[in-house]
Amino acid sequence: MSAIEVAGLVKRYGDFEAVRGVDLTIEEGEVFALLGPNGAGKTTTVEIMEGHRHATAGTVSVLGHDPAKAERSFKDRIGIVLQEGSVEDELTVREAINIHGGAYSRRRNTDELVEIVGLETKANARVGTLSGGQKRRLELAMGIVGEPDLIFLDEPTTGFDPSARREAWSAIDNLRALGKTILLTTHYMDEAQNLSDRVAVMADGRIVAAGTPESIGGREHATTRISFRRPGDVSMPFAARVEGDMVVVEAAAPTVDVHRITSWALEQGLELEELSVSRPSLEDIYLALTEDQ
């Protein structure tokens, strides 16, 4: 059985359709990223799976449960880190974890949790004294206190500085190492690329592409781009276009094409300045997929 099976999911707020027919299957042990710009419908989708919101139409099965029923046995098996959750400033890190963990039937040790999220030196500090990144990691620890089979992370690193993001990523990597199924949302490309086994790009309430970070949006088939600085007024014996100062060759067979171009340059005695071979980045694909929505 898959960890999450969603079919034909629709969510309307009044007249506004925020989620417009989403189908998703997430397998056990998979780290899945829902990637998309603000307002795409990621939080709505994820919170329906958590049981916090109710679907207008469609079927949702999470760990074999209907999340809308909010059964205790279901909540006992999932861990949630909300996009806008928070922890009581008045408690210490340790107390917050213990109290939140009180009702789970399986209970991970508090010291272990503090270590997984790298808050060892802050275990007895008041939550109110933590930085934003530290608070988020505490929420992560609270999200996995009940040994969940499935973890939801809604924008786990939004608003972080680069070093806080690295720390959060390493905490999430630790979860992956535990074999947990993880569904995370993000609008950062590099986050999806670094953390996930599979990505779905969401825009305007729909999934517009899905696959591995390497293949998404037909990226594996997309042509490779060879470019170099235009070497004066010479004619080139291959199809090329000029973009400003640069010559660009769209290469369907890059190995052969690079060889042809460099052979030609050697014959002509030309040095190809700024020669580069590149494939469209996930970012290029993402922008192309989401910009016309």
Partner: peptide
């Protein structure tokens, strides 16, 4: 105020029975 901050929502997502 705990509701405003999202603390209640977080608690609701845990298996704590509301009456407790």
């Amino acid at each position: 105020f705990q509701r405003d901050m999202g603390i209640l929502k977080r608690i609701k997502g845990s298996p704590l029975p509301p009456w407790l």
